[in-house]
Lab assay of single mutants.
Amino acid sequence: MTTFKLIINGKTLKGEITIEAVDAAEAEKIFKQYANDNGIDGEWTYDDATKTDTVTE
């Protein structure tokens, strides 16, 4: 398992969460579901060097 981080730069929700996932694709799926569940819809970027997804509304 690898640690992945999501940075949220939303209009109403800001912060970050960290998860353990098998790979980047699994982490992205989990993060996008989390964002959807919390009403966050924005531009996504991924930095492989830091294993960090960022969503900005």
Rank of each mutant, 00 (worst) to 15 (best):
T12W: 13
A49L: 12
A27T: 00
I19C: 15
N9R: 12
L6G: 01
A24V: 09
Y46E: 02
Q33F: 06
D48A: 13
F31Q: 00
N38R: 12
E16R: 08
K51D: 03
G39P: 03
I7G: 00
Y34G: 01
G42P: 04
I17A: 01
F31A: 01
L13D: 04
I19H: 00
A49P: 06
K11E: 08
G39A: 06
T54Y: 11
L13Q: 06
T52R: 09
N38I: 14
D53Y: 15
D47W: 10
T54M: 09
D41S: 12
T18R: 07
T18S: 08
F4M: 00
A24S: 06
N36E: 13
T18I: 12
I30G: 01
K51P: 04
F4R: 02
Y34M: 06
E28I: 14
I17C: 14
K5L: 09
T52W: 06
E26N: 05
G39F: 09
W44P: 01
A27S: 01
T50V: 05
D47Q: 08
K5Q: 02
T45N: 07
I7E: 01
A21L: 08
K51N: 11
I7W: 06
L13I: 13
K32V: 04
I19G: 00
D37V: 08
I7F: 05
N9I: 13
E57H: 07
K51F: 10
Q33R: 11
I19T: 02
T50F: 06
W44R: 02
E43T: 12
F4Q: 02
T56A: 07
A24Q: 11
I8E: 00
I30W: 14
T18C: 14
N9Y: 13
V22G: 03
N9E: 05
D48H: 12
G10V: 11
I30Q: 03
W44S: 02
E43K: 09
K32N: 05
I7H: 02
E43M: 12
K14A: 05
I40P: 01
Q33P: 00
K29T: 07
D47F: 10
E20I: 14
D53Q: 15
L13H: 10
T56G: 08
D53K: 15
T52N: 03
K11L: 14
K51Y: 08
M1D: 01
N9G: 03
I8V: 06
I30T: 03
A49S: 10
T50W: 07
Q33G: 03
N36I: 14
A21V: 08
I40N: 02
G15W: 15
T52A: 05
T2S: 09
I30Y: 13
I19L: 06
T50G: 06
A27I: 05
A35H: 02
T50K: 06
I17L: 11
D48Y: 12
K32F: 04
A35Q: 03
T12R: 07
G39D: 06
I30P: 00
T56P: 05
K32P: 00
I8N: 00
V55A: 06
D53N: 15
E20T: 11
A35G: 02
T52P: 03
I7V: 10
E16C: 15
L6E: 01
W44K: 01
E16M: 13
L13Y: 14
I40W: 07
L6S: 00
E16Q: 11
F4W: 10
G10A: 08
D41R: 12
E20P: 02
K11A: 10
K5I: 13
D47H: 07
A49I: 11
N38L: 15
T45P: 03
E16Y: 13
F31N: 00
K11S: 10
A27Y: 04
T2L: 14
G15S: 10
K14T: 08
E20R: 13
K32G: 02
Y34A: 00
E26D: 07
A25Q: 12
E16G: 04
T52E: 05
E57A: 06
K29P: 00
F31S: 01
D23V: 09
D41Y: 14
I40M: 03
E28H: 15
G10D: 02
T18Y: 13
E43V: 13
T2F: 14
N38D: 02
E26T: 11
K29F: 09
A27N: 01
T56C: 10
A21K: 03
T50H: 06
Y46V: 04
I40F: 09
K51V: 03
G39C: 13
K51M: 09
T2M: 13
A25E: 12
T12S: 08
D23W: 14
I8F: 11
Y34I: 09
A21C: 14
D41C: 15
G39N: 09
V22L: 11
D47T: 09
A27C: 13
A21M: 05
Y46G: 02
F4G: 02
E28P: 02
D48C: 13
T52C: 12
D47L: 08
A35L: 13
K11N: 11
K29A: 11
Q33M: 11
E43C: 14
G42H: 03
G10Y: 11
D41A: 11
T54F: 09
N38Q: 10
A24P: 07
W44L: 02
D37Y: 10
T12E: 07
T2V: 12
D37W: 08
D47P: 05
F4L: 02
K29Q: 09
T45Y: 11
W44G: 01
K29H: 05
K29S: 06
T54G: 05
Y46C: 14
D41V: 14
T54N: 04
T12M: 08
D23P: 03
A27M: 05
N9S: 05
L6M: 08
K51S: 05
W44M: 02
E26L: 03
G10H: 06
E26C: 11
Y46D: 02
D23I: 03
V22R: 13
N9F: 13
T3K: 12
K14C: 15
E57G: 04
V22W: 13
I40H: 02
T45L: 09
F31H: 00
A27V: 08
N36V: 13
D41I: 14
M1Y: 11
G15D: 07
G15A: 15
M1I: 09
T18H: 08
E26S: 11
L6V: 06
F4I: 04
